[in-house]
Design a protein around this nucleic acid. Sequence first.
DNA 1: GTATATGCAAACAATTTGCACGCCT
DNA 2: AGGCGTGCAAATTGTTTGCATATAC
Lengths: 128, 128
Amino acid sequence: MKRRNTQQRKVILDILRSTDIHPTADWIYERARQYIPNISLGTVYRNLKILRDEGLILELSDGKQSRFDGRIDEHFHFKCSNCNSIYDVDTEEAVRINEEILQKEGYQVHSYDITFTGICPKCNGSQN
Amino acid sequence: MKRRNTQQRKVILDILRSTDIHPTADWIYERARQYIPNISLGTVYRNLKILRDEGLILELSDGKQSRFDGRIDEHFHFKCSNCNSIYDVDTEEAVRINEEILQKEGYQVHSYDITFTGICPKCNGSQN
DNA sequence: GTATATGCAAACAATTTGCACGCCT
DNA sequence: AGGCGTGCAAATTGTTTGCATATAC
């Protein structure tokens, strides 16, 4: 299928690349309306799906909602169970994956997702 | 809150502990009906939430659905993008986590979830 | 010009919830 | 006896989809 380059898709991708809060579709929709006032939520969903299928963004499932990530280089996530924020974790030394072991058992690994859960520095400090 | 020991909750936990397919709420509901024919889906959902909050089971989010896991010892998951099955991965040598590095940055880690995605041995062999 | 993408609203699917009654403790 | 848990059905929420029109190419 030949894909068109629509203003809507460009705006959505720009928004995702300019934040690190891993927003929901709805958050992206509200922000996109500032640039294209009559954009529809359906269009946001359709484009997020397209961008994800093209490998330009990541879709994270957070309970029953999806969140989206404009960063596609290797990194991990930390989810605070107090404030529900999702942080990017860049300390690659914290994780060491040996895919070969899985491959020897017949698994063909394409990607992996690592999410830590706990209390973030902000909530940890302020005790709430 | 004082918790009662209901037949419904016991059946649900037994079902989850006797399978490794990481079932959905609906699958658990259908199976539970074999033991308690008039159990309701709402009750299944309510008890899964309770069991998860008590730390007796794990909730995995699989797209927009949730799946549940009766195993709570440390292990990882492999999701086949062909058949959508979720496998348990027990090779602890495949993953090495250094929580200390995160702790030094102020993160208080309670748990982590690691999910590999790719093609499972079954689908890999049969090419479909 | 033509086919893909859009806006809108209705449809869907998974999950949650209000309520009156039931049953553990 | 008292209150948490249940069954039932309706309500909610996040997401998807059909259709007529608009727009990128």
